[in-house]
Design a protein around this nucleic acid. Structure first.
Length: 127
DNA sequence: GCATTGACGAAGG
DNA sequence: CCCTTCGCCAATG
């Protein structure tokens, strides 16, 4: 049987899936975000018990782009409801378009009525 | 191996 | 009220 051969760059993400990493937990929560809802990095971090590491959640999102199944990273924004991760999308406008498809209004790279669309995993999932 | 940065957040001046 | 600093943890230089 074939064994590991030329390691694809994508394999790095696959390797992450293989082992339980902090990233996988973040992706798992992100996938549970209902359609038309959004959450913040801090909220996810809080659910994971690492609210002080909200930055890591954002970093995990960085790997979410090669995560499978796909992770709705566009539903995760910063505490201000601003599309801080927008420039990381491809194309950047992708994030806003996806949000608008979910009936979420975005103006000036910011979600309108953010707290109305806010979805707290620690609250909804019943921490 | 140390220094810097990063899709954050809360606190301090 | 706006700007700066610290904390967190991992990745990159």
């Amino acid at each position: 049987m074939k064994k590991a051969k030329s390691p694809n760059k994508e394999e790095t993400a696959k390797d992450n899936l293989n082992k339980h990493s902090f990233f996988e937990d973040v992706w798992d929560v992100a996938r549970q975000i209902p359609k038309g809802r959004v959450t913040s990095y801090g909220a996810v971090a809080n659910y994971l018990g690492t609210k002080l590491s909200a930055r890591m959640v954002g970093w995990a999102m960085n790997g979410a782009f090669h995560a499978r199944p796909k992770v709705p990273a566009h539903r995760v924004v910063n505490r201000n409801g601003m599309l801080s991760g927008k420039p990381h999308f491809s194309p950047p406008s992708r994030m806003q378009e996806l949000l608008e498809k979910e009936k979420i209004k975005v103006v000036n790279d910011k979600i309108v009525d953010f707290e109305k669309h806010f979805w707290d995993p620690a609250k909804e999932l019943g921490l």
